[in-house]
Design a protein around this nucleic acid. Sequence first.
RNA 1: GCCGAUGUGGUGGAAUGGCAGACACGCUUGACUCAAAAUCAAGUAUCGCAAGAUGUGCGGGUUCAAGUCCCGCCAUCGGCACCA
Length: 802
Amino acid sequence: MNKYDHAAVEAKWQKYWDEHDSFKAETGSKKPKFYALVEFPYPSGAGMHVGHIKAYSGLEVVSRKRRMQGYNVLFPIGFDAYGLPTENTAIKTGVHPRKVTDNNIIKFTGQLKKVGFSFDWSRVVDTTEEDYYKWTQWIFLKMFENGLVFRDKTLVNYCPSCKVVLSNEDSQGGKCDVCHSDIIQKEKEVWYLRITEYADKLLEGLDTVNYLPNIRLQQENWIGRSTGAFVNFKIKEFPDESLRIYTTRPDTLYGVTFMVIAPEHPIIEKYRDKIKNIAELDAYKTECAKKSEFERTQLVKDKTGVCIDGLTGINPITGKEVPIYISDYVMMGYGTGAIMAVPAHDQRDYEFAKKFGIDIIEVIKGGDISKEAYTGDGEMINSDILNGMTNKKDSIAKMLEYLEEKGIGEQGVQYKMKDWAFNRQRYWGEPIPIVHCPDCGMVPVPYDELPLKLPPVENFEPGSDGESPLAKIDSFVKCKCPKCGKDARRETDTMPQWAGSSWYFLRYTDPHNHEALASKEALEYWMPVDWYNGGMEHVTRHMIYSRFWHHFLYDIGAVNTPEPYAKRTAQGLILGPDGDKMSKSKGNVVDPNDVVDEYGADVLRIYVLFMGDYEQAAPWSETSVKGCKRFLDRIWALQDKLIDGDEYRPEMVSLMHRTVKKVSEDIENMKFNTAVAAMMSLINTFYEKDSVNKAEYRTLLTILNPFAPHITEEIYNTVYGGILSEQKWADYDESLCVDDTIEIAVQINGKVRGKVTIPTDADNDTAIAAAKANETIAAAIEGKNIVKEIYVTGRLVNIVAK
RNA sequence: GCCGAUGUGGUGGAAUGGCAGACACGCUUGACUCAAAAUCAAGUAUCGCAAGAUGUGCGGGUUCAAGUCCCGCCAUCGGCACCA
């Protein structure tokens, strides 16, 4: 047999698949549909790295298997091409972002094809194409129409280096997601999408989908729903005024000894003239504004604050007066920006009270409040109506009832999730299709004028004050109001990077539609996505955003299901050979092209799946790649050991069926590493026997095909004729997975002392008798008192002897 | 601080409470070769000549039997972080 020439064979079959549209999905087909989705790449200048390959290889294997099982499979790919890195390249090199993007897409496409992924290349989408972003703008306008878009002047996360406003999701940890500079807080008028309105739907929707538990949990934490109570505290000095607080522990209301409001709380401005120590408060406010994110988190334990002289709260159920402080441990952005402080049962309040010498009143027994706050359950004391109760839930319920009856408070819900800051002061993004008219205010661009095209620009530098480069283009900015026809100004901000990716999976179902984002038939046929795989890093951003958009589209009747993804999984990272995260700066990035050139695409595909548990991170190892190369070479060389046979040889039957079962099940469970191991094990047996028959070889090639499509196609075509990927997936018969006899271990007191072979269907007595008949075992239990004998079917016998 | 994941040979990693280390890498020895690479064969947890003993981050426990279950710790990674 000739040596396997991976370059020639892979090129041959890739050409064949291309010319025959082998992986084209057919909308409306009678076959059962299967929509497999992988996260489309951002086409960066660096090209793809092996992490992309691993991310796509999982569902690639599933898709190829599904096709062989008779499914009509949609496995699409596209490019999420708007974004800062491209724009920064453009600024640096002077090449237009359009050109940069096109070049990068060509590069990515070449890399993907070289790996032999079975994408439907007729459905490629590019979020920066007019025909695509037209519908991104359309969705935005629909949201505008439905009151989900608003503008607000607030403190925003601002990256001084990128000169853009960032969403909370993009500034996690106080660092810019793109350039890792420190984020500062800046007051700006920005666009928001009212995602909080969908918080409950996003939370409840999780019950109807199948996400990996940790993915679901991260989303739940991100949405951060808490139930509690709003309670109104009257102000002693101004009987008509009340301060509204939010608490999750209304059961501790009797333990309130002070209140705290955020430094930015509006009540301070309202009573500015009446507050005696206003200068002191102002000074504190200024100090807080200066603190960086870093300082705030570092000084978490050290509580600071100032007592307001001139405003005093009144506990609504005890009538007791309580001082009001301002402190930066209370945020304006959560709840009402004001809290009731219960130092005995909240650690933060406890620290504050200790520092400022405030009373601590215990209302729940069980802790030692001379040392720390007690947050557990216990008997209620000093609490009048709640005294003697021992269950937190019951106490809260009773208190809520009381509050509502007296009209001083009511049950309430809060979310950690904030509304989505939806604009960037940058060029390379979808223009926001809104016109500012001096008379009519914000006016949407009419639907028939979409897409609102991104105008050609020479200079992509953002303005120094954080203005979009579009603001400098008069022909774009100056326009007529679509409503009244007067001179108006066009919005110059663009949408954030996450816009285009929030609905791309819908476009795949009908990518060339000019009348709608996708036809009703296509959406109804394909949606929801049956299985979506991607990175954990997108669980709280892309996944939340796109679910939000989809729920909205469902509400306006544009799509047929509330949830877009029926199932979501995530792959683990590929680390550099040094065990560190791959990064350009560390120089430990592995280029898939190099691997394909040297070892072949099939080897690369097998290796990224074999290197470890798919969901776990694992370091790259060049020497291990060679092991996969060896495996495929041995598959190839088996052609020399081929003998005739239409059926499995009798001694191979159970192993063949077991292997098919193992590989079939492992693929479904994303245990690709053990699936490959099972096939390696099988060919080791063929080598031990020094032969493989045609029936066995055919099955092996079939179940290996999704992993290594090129080499298996080539062998199949040579040996059997025809196209392997058009053949049926291999079946297995559960009853044939076992042999007639089985070797079991025999233990004495839990330690293995021997092995015996027994019939597979042997009963307890037979198995134990066989075990005792074994010489070593017989000798070992000679003269001993047998306490117990256990036979675990098909596994072992354990004899307990003294 | 809170939530989650992980911890097994020299390495990557396997193990529905039932023979720990499948499969692979690496290494050792041998075959082929003038030689090397490739390939093939045998071996490879630790200690021990052996019989045997010990071994899944640490300390306890449950069980005939624990990597797996329970209790208490430690370490690493990821997410959130003064969320009232």
